[in-house]
Design a protein around this nucleic acid. Structure first.
Length: 253
DNA sequence: GCGACAG
DNA sequence: ATCTTGTCGC
């Protein structure tokens, strides 16, 4: 995958600026106003998982969990071939098409299972141009989205984003590594943070975590001889779940 | 040259 | 994103 031209980058920036205007930064759903989110029954999670030295092929994952029990109601895995390279600040152009496809597949096959909110692996408004993956997917899908990043993006102290930073960036306290929650679409920051808490068993919100786990399994069907035999990396995921390191993260919330 | 770099 | 084992603690 070759590096994109400056021309394409400018086009992407322009597209982000345009779509940015369509982001709704407030609560638009009744359940979002409820003390215990009554009315919320399905929360979604999306993720793309990769394997060792391959940046082109990935497994696109969409899971829908029940709320508040967080039981898996729906799970969709799909091998996809990416066309855009990863560039910080433009993650959406690499991943969004496939996440949208997954949502559309669900809408077509079992619309009653569509999630009422989607957790996205990456930032929302906490982004260089206030339009990260969670916003992008939110605007294009029309669904409420919450961005959850595991690593801190260094957003320069440009006027408005400085305020957004103080508002949209919520980390856990002390000991364990925090996650960074920001508004994607059709949800307020406070609600996004509160909902994230309600969906966390461990550090990473359950919808995203489940998407990642199922995404890893997806690889086992692709090249059995390479991934079917005892694979330390795959087995580890299963054994890693109940570990102490993960449990400690529970205290972050 | 050095730091940054969501996934 | 992925590469990666054991080990300490509840």
């Amino acid at each position: 995958m070759s590096a994109p031209s400056d021309d394409l980058i400018r086009q992407w920036e322009s597209e982000q600026a345009s779509l940015r205007q369509r982001v709704l930064e407030e609560d638009t759903e009744d359940w979002q106003r409820e003390p215990h989110f009554s009315g919320l029954e399905r929360v979604g999670g999306v993720d793309l998982s990769f394997i060792k030295g391959d940046n082109v092929n990935a497994c696109a994952q969409l899971v829908v969990l029940s709320f508040p029990d967080l039981e898996v109601l729906y799970e969709d895995s799909r091998m996809v071939t990416l066309t855009a390279p990863y560039i910080a600040g433009f993650l959406a152009f690499r991943e969004t098409p496939f996440l949208l496809e997954a949502l559309r597949r669900l809408e077509r096959s079992q619309p009653a299972l569509l999630p009422q909110v989607v957790f996205v692996d990456g930032n929302g408004l906490f982004h260089y141009r206030e339009f990260g993956l969670a916003c992008h997917l939110g605007v294009l899908s029309g669904l409420p989205c919450v961005g959850v990043a595991k690593n801190l993006l260094q957003v320069q102290g440009v006027s408005k984003s400085q305020e957004h930073q103080a508002q949209a960036l919520r980390s856990s306290d002390g000991s364990s590594k925090p996650v960074y929650v920001s508004v994607g679409h059709r949800i307020s920051v406070d609600t996004a943070v509160r909902l994230t808490h309600a969906c966390c068993r461990y550090r990473v919100p359950e919808p995203i975590r489940q998407a990642t786990v199922h995404g890893d399994r997806c690889w086992e069907d692709v090249s059995p001889w390479e991934h079917g035999r005892p694979n330390p990396a795959r087995i580890k995921v299963e054994e890693k779940l109940p570990s102490a390191a993960v449990l400690r993260d529970k205290s972050c919330f």
